Structures are given as C-alpha cells and as structure tokens.
Simulated scan of single mutants.
Amino acid sequence: MKKPSTELASSSRIQFKESNEDCSSIPSEDEEEIENELADVTFEELQKARSNGSHLVFQKPKEEKMSRRANKNRPMEASSKKPVPTFRDIVQAPKKVARDPRFESLCGTLDTEGFRKRYNFLFENELPAEKEALHKKLKKCKDPKIINEVEERISWIDKQLKSDTTKRADADILAKHKKKEREAAKQGKRPFYMKKSEIREQRLIEKYKELKASGKLEKFIEKKRRKNAAKDHKFMPYRRPGE
C-alpha cells in the first residue's frame, strides 16, 4: 500500500519541476512586454479579472508585419496560414476585343448597290439551279429524313429569292425618288425623304399595275383571299358536340 503514495509524490515532484522549468524558460524580453501591457490595463479591469477567477489580461492585437523580400532577386514569401484563392491570374494574357463590322468605322461603310452587283450571280444563277437539282432529288429519294432536309433547303432558297426581289424593287423605287428630289432641289425646293412604309406602299402599287397589265390580277386576289381565310380559320372556335 505504500508504493502508490511514493509514485504520487514522485509524479507531483516531477510536475513541479516542469512548471519551474517552464517559468524559468520565459525570456526577459517577453517579461518586459507583459509588464508594458499590464501597465496600460486599468485597475478596474484587473479587479474584474480577479473576481471572475480568470486572471486573464487581454493583449493588444499585434500589428501585421509587412512581408518583405530578403533580396530583390528572391520571390515574396507568403504566409501558409492564409488560404490560397482558387482562381489566380498568374499570367495576365491580353483580352480579346470582339469587333462588330456593322458599327466600326475602321471597317468602312457598306455599299449595298456594289454588294448586290458583285453577288448578283447567286440569286440569278446559283440558287435557281440548286432549287431545280433539289426538286429532282426529291422525286427520286424515299428516305423521310433526307426528304425533310431537302424540303427545308428548298423553302430557304424560296425565302432568299423572295427577299432579293423585294429588296431590288425597294432599291429601284428609292433610286427613282432620289433622282426626282435632286432635280427639285436644284430648283430650290426642300427635299422629301421617303419612309419605309411609303416605299412599301409604292411597291404594292407598282405590283398592282403589273398584275393588271398582265391580266393576273383576279387570280392573285383570289389566292390572297384563300390564304387570309385559312389564317382566320385557325382562330375560329370548333363546334360543340351537343350543338
């Protein structure tokens, strides 16, 4: 029964010796810093700390040391405590600036008449020839997937040809109007600029005159009437089964 008492005594002595060694290991510079910090603390704060039993003295936050390089040829030392960001711009590459030629003065201005003259062969020769070849292919083909693709291509060609004819008609009307207004301006009159709606109206008038001269006006009006009736039929309500 005497053995455990001796062990406890020896353990307590060892702890006491370690605590003394820890106290003696504190350098004198740290003691001076603690004394300086305690000098700034008020008596009231010390009394509160003692009453709570904590005996804690709040140290002032130390100023962050500026990270400097030991040598100008060495890299900057970063702290391992700070987390590294996920995205870092290691090499700043030059940004690609996208330019739209429609709104850039460097690209010049678009000459619509010159563009139409240069690429006139597409609308007069290439697209009509492609349309005929697609019609021949459509007659021979039996695969529904290929038939669908060919029909979509033919509809696209029709739209392109139709838009080209309307643009040409609008350009001719505008050119005639500009020529007329130049002659009027020479006489001292104020120029009149046509709107898009007025150009469209003038185009329809000229088309009406052409159809009337060729004798196709009634056929055109009947086709237009059926097309409008089909559009109106979509919005008509269906009959109820009880009626």
Rank of each mutant, 00 (worst) to 15 (best):
V91F: 15
V91W: 14
V91I: 15
A93V: 13
K95R: 13
K96G: 04
V97A: 07
V97N: 06
A98P: 05
A98C: 07
A98L: 13
R99I: 14
D100P: 01
P101S: 09
P101R: 09
F103P: 03
S105T: 07
S105V: 07
S105H: 05
L106W: 11
L106D: 12
L106Q: 10
C107W: 12
C107K: 12
C107Q: 13
G108L: 02
G108N: 06
T109D: 12
T109Y: 11
T109Q: 13
T109N: 11
T109H: 12
L110C: 05
D111L: 00
D111Q: 02
T112L: 07
T112K: 11
E113K: 12
E113M: 09
E113C: 06
G114A: 00
F115Y: 11
K117T: 03
Y119H: 12
Y119M: 11
Y119K: 07
F121E: 11
L122V: 07
F123E: 09
E124G: 00
E124D: 04
N125T: 12
N125M: 09
E126T: 11
E126Y: 08
E126W: 05
E126N: 06
P128A: 06
A129K: 05
A129C: 00
A129P: 00
K131T: 00
K131V: 00
E132V: 06
A133L: 03
A133V: 03
L134H: 00
L134C: 06
L134T: 02
K136N: 14
K137Q: 12
K137C: 04
L138M: 07
L138P: 01
L138F: 03
L138T: 02
K139E: 14
C141D: 12
K142G: 10
D143H: 01
D143T: 03
P144E: 10
P144Y: 08
P144M: 07
P144C: 06
I146T: 15
I146F: 10
I146P: 01
I147M: 10
I147G: 04
N148I: 09
N148E: 14
N148D: 13
N148W: 07
E149N: 09
V150Q: 15
E151D: 06
E151G: 08
R153P: 01
R153H: 02
I154E: 02
I154R: 03
I154L: 14
I154W: 00
S155A: 15
S155P: 04
S155H: 14
S155C: 13
W156F: 15
W156M: 15
W156Q: 15
W156P: 08
I157P: 02
I157E: 01
I157H: 01
D158N: 12
